[in-house]
Every structure is written in structure tokens, then in C-alpha cells.
Design a protein around this nucleic acid. Sequence first.
DNA 1: TTGATATATGTCGTAATACGATATATATGC
DNA 2: GCATATATATCGTATTACGACATATATCAA
Lengths: 141, 141
Amino acid sequence: MKKLEDDLTDADYEALSTLRYTLRRFMDFSASAAQQEGLPAQQHQALLTIRGHRGVEAMTIGSLAERLLIAPHSATELVGRLVAAGYVSRTTDLVDKRKQTLALTEKADAVLKRLTKTHIAEIKELAPQLIDILRDLQRDL
Amino acid sequence: MKKLEDDLTDADYEALSTLRYTLRRFMDFSASAAQQEGLPAQQHQALLTIRGHRGVEAMTIGSLAERLLIAPHSATELVGRLVAAGYVSRTTDLVDKRKQTLALTEKADAVLKRLTKTHIAEIKELAPQLIDILRDLQRDL
DNA sequence: TTGATATATGTCGTAATACGATATATATGC
DNA sequence: GCATATATATCGTATTACGACATATATCAA
């Protein structure tokens, strides 16, 4: 349906560039919204990850690290900040005492609820545009 | 089609969390790919932005900053690094001597071409999943 | 059980980079 | 032709993830 060679067109670069721009705007919106609630972006992501976690196993430092794509010891530091700020409680797992079980405080629940509503609203604005760009790139090459 | 109250369900948090996880994986893939080419992620974004720029006006420090959502003086520093590494040429605009016109070197063109191909391939993998999640969130609330 | 190894988390110094505050050069408008 | 705005640049600072290393607990084989 398109060019026969495997070379890239100006439109290809433009599409990818626009995708990244759109993603940046979303991330920027998100970071600003979190900041307004007094939360650094990464701490917001940690709260969302803990709250959005499905599964029988409780959330731990290690699984948080996996989900955030950071090293376990970086998650340790991140959780340290969250506990210090009163957003997360950290309890030693009773079965495996190496593990730390994480849970949100009421304070975190309230903040995250507001942020999540705002984010879903923003996504509704952004989604159609994003889907269009993704479809374009799918068809590409 | 869903709950009547404006409250969030566990599934809402889960969907948003999954969206962010998917975005992180893409960004992480991208950062790793760039790193393998010797480029920090932000420098890669700068190159892509310059290359993907459409419009009569040439790319400048200021418009790069806008597109990257960073402060102009941060773009100055970023471009400084790119010039030092031989990826970008910076020339004073002839009409408006305050402006710096940016262009990619051949070295940058080659690297960016490889990276862009890889990225488009990756997006083809990720796009269906991403579109699904976005649709879910669109229908939501 | 014991000892060896693996796993989970924690500590501390470092590096990278965007920012704030500030500065300079050029343009533009009255 | 000055006052103000715009575009870019410089430098010190703050944030945060990481590498290197350390500790505690678990697991498994002999």
C-alpha cells in the first residue's frame, strides 16, 4: 500500500515525532497535575501502581520496581520518600520476612482519586488523536 | 453503560495503571535503543524533533524547546551537547540574528534512520494493545 | 542441622540533566 | 534612537535513579 523500498519518508519521521510530542504532552499534563497535589510524578506513578495492582499477592518493593521499570533499590528509595510523606505504609511480610508489603494511606487514596479522575478526563480528550497516530504508524512501511 | 455514580472502580485504576505501564515499556525500549546507539534518550528526541519538523521556518532552539516541552535555556544546553557530539549544526539565522538554525549532520541522519525503523517496528507490536486500553478508558465513567 | 547460595531490601556516594537566576545580543515599536 | 521584548547563553543547584556494596531472610543440598 506504500513505497516499495524499506526507506523512510519525511512523513514517517513526522508521524513518529508527533506521536512522541503527544505522549510528552500527556506526561507533562500528568506531572503538572501531580505536582499541584504536591506529588512528584514518579511518586504519583508509584501510588497508581499500588492502587491498580490486581492479584492475590500484596504489592511489594520488588513488584513495584518491576512495574515501574526501575531497579529494586531505587524502589526502596522511592518508597522511603512516600512513607516519609505519609502516602504509603510499609509492613514486613509475615510469611516472607524479607518482603515489605505496601499499602496506601487514606491521604494517598484521596489524592489519587482526584488525580485519576482528572487523568481519565484528559485521556478522553487525547485518545482519539493518539489512536489516529498509532493507526497511521501501524499501516506504515 | 456503566455505574451511575462518579466514583472510580478498581478496574478504572487498573486500566490507567496498565496504560502507564505500557507507555513506560515503550519509553524504556526507546531509551535502550537510543543508548545502544550512544544517544541519551532526550538527545534522540531532539534529533527526531528536528528531523520530523514540517514547516517553512527552519528549526530553532526556541521551537525545539516548545516541541520538547522544556525551557528555552534547557534546549540551549541540550543542543550544546548535540553539537559537541557532532549530531547537530548550529548556525545563526541570517534574517534574525538572535535565532540559531539547527540541522542534522549526516552522522545523525544515519543513526536516526536506524532508530526510527526500530521504533516503527516496535510500535506495530505495541499499537493494538495501546489502542485497546485507550478505547477502554474512553468508554469509561 | 549446617553451610552455601539466592533473594529482597537497604545505604551511600555519584552522575546526569532540567531548572532558576541572571546575562547578553538582537529586534521592534513608539 | 531609546525602551521594551525576544532569543539564546551561562552557571550554580536540586532531584533522582544508579552502581557498588551491605544486611537479613529463605531455600536447598549434603
